[in-house]
Design a protein around this nucleic acid. Structure first.
Lengths: 192, 192
DNA sequence: TGTACATCAGTGAACGCGCGTTCACTGATGTAC
DNA sequence: TGTACATCAGTGAACGCGCGTTCACTGATGTAC
């Protein structure tokens, strides 16, 4: 059990990563200092050597979750070849895998409702990522793509959220498929 | 200060209504027994004469919130004349007013993320309302309307959620407007 | 219609519990010589 | 390179607080005669 500065940085990263996973999986309010520290095999007292307070941790964890989620989404898309990048990203975003792995997925869809009722600072953090999401989509849609991109992003985030609520697996799958097909078609077809 | 049976029923309704408002405004976990009873000018002890437990109350409050939210949405639509019912409903759902009055608005959009991570029973309650929402839209779209309705509902719920997060009011308005225009156009235009 | 009594809606003190936060301590780390 | 000491990451007991829940109580309600 080392106590070096290197180890401290590593521990901070582990705490943050665990928190980022948990807020996506169970919501912002689900995180308790004691529970979180236990999860990374440390005692609760040590927490305040890394963060000023629980709410400070939550702010940083949200940032981390949003970045991880974005990386996840981008990573899937960029590994595919150029022409299919858009379609493969949409397919991956609206996949059953993504729906079923909230903890590792897009933090926007996992936390829209929660952040929507949070303070302005918290909302600003997520806003940046929403804008980036829309910009990426707009670029794929080509000129005059902003309005279409907004619709596509809203539909994708809404679909993922709904698919996680729907109790009937078939209906849940159907929602993912309908929006997947539609958004991919939105790019191919020019009119509206 | 009466204690009649009639008064009891009225008090139960008041507690439930206050809870339904609060969960939409601040989330399921925000409700505390003491705080809620204080809001309706009763003491916390009396709570257990109306509900078995806090979690029992939450289940009923979610049901109530979903029904109220639906009524709100339908009420707006049906007051308009027939041919414009669809467009006026969409306009009302994606209005700044609806965005800014979470406590009285659609419970699906206010609580998707929260319910998405809840147990199967809770999810089933909201699922019923999602299906009804989709069915209503599908009817408006005419034959083969199901897939289109799914896309429209996902986009509407996503848009409302995003508009509540976006810190820049102009961008928030723009998201509402883009999806509003698009969904209304989806009905007029036949091809996809 | 009027009285006597059982019922029961709401009160407020009390409970155990988990939480966020503080702090004196410990022992490994890393620096000064 | 080796020793002596200051630093500081992590420990775990302790704190005050708010929470959900229980319960003995009270006084108005509503029923039986």
């Amino acid at each position: 059990m080392g106590h070096s500065q290197v180890e401290k940085a590593r521990n901070r990263a582990r705490i943050l990563k665990a928190a980022a996973r948990q807020i996506r999986d169970q919501g912002l309010e689900s995180v308790s200092v004691g529970g979180l520290m236990e999860k990374v095999n440390l005692t609760h007292g040590g927490f305040y050597g890394h963060f000023d307070s629980r709410s400070d941790l939550l702010a940083e964890a949200l940032r981390q979750a949003l970045e991880e989620g974005e990386g996840h989404a981008r990573g899937q898309g960029s590994s595919a070849d150029r022409p299919n990048r858009f379609a493969s990203f949409v397919r991956s975003y609206l996949s059953r895998t993504h729906r079923d792995s909230r903890a590792a997925g897009c933090a926007i869809s996992a936390l829209v409702s929660d952040v929507g009722r949070a303070g302005e600072l918290t909302r600003a953090v997520m806003s940046k990522h929403i804008e980036r999401f829309i910009d990426d989509m707009a670029r794929a849609f080509g000129e005059d793509g902003d309005a279409k991109a907004i619709v596509a992003v809203a539909a994708m985030i809404g679909a993922l959220g709904l698919s996680r609520v729907l109790a009937d697996p078939k209906r849940s799958d159907a929602v993912l498929k309908a929006v997947r097909d539609y958004v991919i078609a939105m790019k191919r077809i020019e009119g509206i």
